[in-house]
Design a protein around this nucleic acid. Structure first.
Lengths: 365, 365
DNA sequence: TTGTATGCGTTATCAC
DNA sequence: GTGATAACGCATACAA
């Protein structure tokens, strides 16, 4: 045993003490010193297994372990340009619809070694633009859930960093679109077979792409079955928004309502109950999203479900592997970029008792 | 007009083109070139207003604007040691209890110019430790909500970075403890005056600090009023956990149950309904947290509320301004650190119809 | 007030 | 296979 090896423990202690004294964490320089190699060798040993001899690799790993080393993500990011962070921008964190998205996104991010940073826009396009600008320099990619940004703003954004949309389709930008078309058809079918001849769609925000999509799906399904269909709105996509809409619903003389989302459906049901209107006997109510709580209220809410956890996960994985679209090389003119085909997620709608694709539909009076 | 100024636009264009060509963002070097000053002057002009002449400051700002400059957070962090990021670690994102915390935390973070990164531990201490280690190098501080970490692990952590706990008290570590003591007293009082003589507490996880606290509050309040009180558990803090507990609740021959949280209360009510036991006529059920949905279910759930949004906000602000406890300077021995006094948040419990401090308490049979 | 020089911790590009 | 050195973008002592 050489004098060298007999002092190894002390050497480690000395370095450790120095590290603590400067109040920070151990660096690859500390490891290099302890292992008796060059810092660049440490970086390689830790980063690219295989391109280094087994012996030194082991020495380096041991030293790193001994000093409780963890790489500094900022220093790495500065050099590589990759932060290993993904941004998730949501309209409203308290909206139960996004819970699934957040969970799916967080899991997928952690699994892929990414850190998830989130921001909320409060349903305001201005706030959202601000949040996006704030996040953008720190992340490798961005997931925008039910964004209120304009298509052109999104296109511009996608030129800078990989962007993945949830519940929104923009040409040339990746998107995850939970497909509720089949669920809508089955819901309308179910309402029709239950005797409903006049239905209202309680619209959400008119800036919402998914709102437009739901309306057009419902419109088509109703037309096909020769059922009367009217659109009422736009409304706030909240319980209060649903409450406020009851009067117009009653005035429309329909026997069933499909709301833009479960929150509005719940609000409508609450207000109906307050006015002595029984659901579903006097009014059938259905929503979208299958939020937490829809199975708890009485009567159980009819809702068309989409797998938001999967959507969040897919979006994050796409954002992580994504590269921004190549920018125009020319000196002037409009940028000509590849048009990536938006891909569509097709989860099976949740099947429950009464109607396939929808859960527990109410019956007609 | 000099040739210089007549070519300003072209100069900017040229620099912009170069920036685009290298596929990144503009740096202070680009600004310095365009404004005709030194990079360090740019840094100062943008960072410390006042310590620079008004003229050059304006020039620099104009150039920065022109080049659409945003500082690189990684480069800044590498130099300053501050990332302007805060970590929020949650046991379970899908648990409605944490929604308020997340929202409050996100708002406070954005308002203070911090970026919030979140991680989920899935109720597992191991996962949580892993998530913490993953986040730690990237953040200036950490907020741990209903953590499953041991007190010693938390103390160690607090030595490295500022740590703020929510729903957990550890000596020497800052914490936000929504005070539900008053609400508990009023709830028990209400149950007593409604005729209940025997109550059960449906316990949560035995590793939960807040669970122990709730139990001791309830125990004291019941003792004082000479009401029989029993603890049943531990149970999973979920709807399923509540469901599974019904049998033991019935076996205990109590007329009222206070569950560890609303989810368990809901599960208990669901199972009771399934077994033909009417709530609140045959069994009164109360919970904690006032989660989303508790006002939607029928009958309305009795619940003791705490202002979690405020708690999340306070925790983030504390973490942002916090400094880690000074480490021991000596060469050996136990570190002697300041013991920061944990401070307690005292929100007013939500007041609703029946009982002060609790919302819509059920009545005794 | 502004310019010069240096360092933050890592990866990448050369040599050897 | 390993070492030396530059570079990432910014902030900051120190000089001028």
């Amino acid at each position: 045993m050489s004098a060298q090896s007999s002092t190894d423990g002390d050497a480690a202690e000395a370095i450790l003490a120095r590290v603590r004294a400067r109040g920070g964490a151990a660096t690859i320089y500390d490891i290099a010193e302890l292992a008796g190699v060059n810092p660049s060798t440490v970086s390689r040993a830790l980063g690219k297994p295989g391109r280094i001899s087994a012996g030194t690799a082991a020495k380096v790993r041991a030293a790193a372990e001994r000093l409780d080393f963890r790489v500094n993500p900022m220093a790495r990011a500065l050099q590589t340009g990759k932060t290993r962070m993904l941004g998730l921008v949501l309209a409203d964190i308290t909206n139960p619809v996004v819970f699934g998205i957040v969970r799916g996104a967080e899991h997928a991010a952690a699994a892929a070694g990414y850190t998830l940073v989130i921001a909320e826009s409060q349903e305001s396009g201005e706030n959202e633009a601000e949040a996006v600008e704030r996040l953008l320099p720190s992340v490798d990619g961005l997931v925008l859930a039910t964004t209120r940004l304009s298509a052109s703003a999104i296109t511009d954004l996608a030129q800078r960093k990989p962007v993945v949309l949830i519940n929104r389709a923009v040409d040339g930008v990746d998107g995850v679109l939970p497909d509720v078309g089949a669920g809508v058809v089955e819901l309308v079918e179910h309402l029709a077979s239950s005797g409903h001849r006049a239905i209202a769609y309680l619209a959400g925000p008119d800036t919402s792409w998914i709102n437009a999509r739901r309306w057009s799906d419902i419109l088509a399904a109703a037309e096909e079955r020769r059922i009367a269909i009217v659109e009422i709105g736009p409304n706030h996509p909240t319980i209060a928004g649903g409450r406020d809409a009851l009067r117009r619903v009653r005035a429309a003389h329909v026997s069933a309502v499909i709301a833009y989302n479960d929150l509005m459906a719940i609000g409508l049901m609450q207000e109906a109950a307050a006015r002595g209107i029984t659901v579903p006997d006097q009014l059938s109510v259905a929503g979208f999203d299958d939020i937490f709580g829809s199975e708890l209220i009485v009567p159980p809410l009819t809702t068309v479900a989409a797998d938001l956890v999967a959507a969040g996960g897919r979006a994050v994985r796409a954002a992580g592997r994504g590269r921004r679209l190549p920018a125009e090389r020319g000196t002037s003119g409009t940028a000509a970029h590849d048009v990536a085909r938006a891909w569509v997620d097709r989860p099976r709608p949740r099947r429950m008792t009464s109607a396939p694709g929808v859960s527990q539909a109410g019956t007609a009076p």
